[in-house]
């Protein structure tokens, strides 16, 4: 087995239960508060921090820029990369650039459709899909790109990158089998770790994990903080493959306004406690409440 390329890879190889966090670059250039928050709340607690890539197709500053600033602040980033906005030329180019900047973790994603975001008129690209993107990364790692020279041979790179490559899955989709097959394809294409879509149903997750055991890839269960009952209901309504059970909604509803954050943290902790035995880590998506991460981790380890 080759040397790990990132601290995240090392941590997962070590077999400890790993936490990852997530930040979103701003719509604008004012990125300092986001970085500051990440350093304050996530540094030292999360093995790595994802930087989202024009999440939900709402235009924001680039993921690469956020990753670079995290690196500079001593936080290991995970570069999220979606297929929606760039063709294979741009994707490969940005991967090389990311590597040049020192970024070593990549999460390959399909990306929400343009029509869901704030530029619904834009052209959805999807030149590659997530499987194709993982294959492209592996190809770059092997010293060639997706193109061919005049003789029909693969183009050689002058220096090749190495990444710890991740992918996503929706473990609690209504029909999970096609998700699992797609995950198998992603792993076959080169995915080395998995961060899941939000999970609120430990039993379903456990069943999912048994199904993907044979893939032998570390899975970090996705934990999205529910800030209110309204948000929980919204997720049930609108987020594909996410089911927030009634007990969580009840607890959020019953909590007083000042207690709500505490309750939310407790819920995250409880979910992680219930699922940590069957997975290798948790990916915490606090949606701006990064300051809660220490308490969530504490609750998860209680």
């Amino acid at each position: 087995m080759s040397e790990p390329v990132s601290k995240l890879e090392s941590a997962l190889r070590a077999g400890t239960f790993v936490f990852t966090g997530e930040i979103g670059p701003p719509k604008g250039t004012h990125i300092e508060p986001v970085i500051h928050e990440a350093v304050a709340s996530l540094k030292g607690r999360c093995a790595a921090v994802n930087v989202t890539d024009i999440q939900t197709a709402v235009m924001r500053a680039s993921s690469v820029a956020g990753c670079k600033l995290l690196l500079d602040a001593g936080v290991e980033p995970v570069l999220q990369m979606v297929c929606r906005d760039r063709n294979r030329l741009a994707l490969q180019s940005d991967l090389l650039g990311a590597h040049i900047l020192g970024i070593r973790n990549v999460l390959a994603l399909t990306g929400d459709h343009t029509t869901l975001g704030d530029h619904p008129q834009s052209m959805p690209v999807y030149d590659l899909d997530s499987v194709g993107l993982l294959e492209a990364i592996v190809r770059l790692e092997s010293g060639t790109d997706m193109g061919r020279d005049m003789k029909g041979n693969p183009n050689q790179l002058d220096g090749s990158p190495r990444f710890f490559k991740g992918c996503c899955v929706t473990p609690c989709a209504e029909v999970v089998d096609p998700q699992i097959i797609k995950l198998e394809k992603k792993v076959a294409a080169g995915a080395q770790f998995v961060q899941t879509q939000a999970v609120y149903d430990p039993a379903a997750f456990e069943a999912f994990m048994r199904n993907v055991e044979s893939l032998k890839v570390p899975v970090l269960v996705g934990i999205v903080m529910l800030k209110s009952a309204a948000m929980a209901k919204y997720m049930n309504r609108s987020v594909p493959g996410v089911v927030v059970p009634e007990w969580i909604i009840t607890r959020l509803t019953e909590a007083s306004k000042e207690d709500r954050q505490k309750v939310s943290i407790e819920i995250c902790g409880q979910l992680i406690r219930q699922m940590k035995s069957c997975c290798q880590g948790a990916h915490l998506m606090t949606l701006g409440w990064d300051h809660c991460v220490p308490e969530i981790i504490a609750a998860a380890e209680a």
Partner: peptide
């Protein structure tokens, strides 16, 4: 809607 060729994405919601 994304013309994917390797299978469903995470955006499938109740079919």
């Amino acid at each position: 809607s994304k013309s994917l060729i390797n299978g469903t994405c995470g955006g499938t919601n109740n079919g």
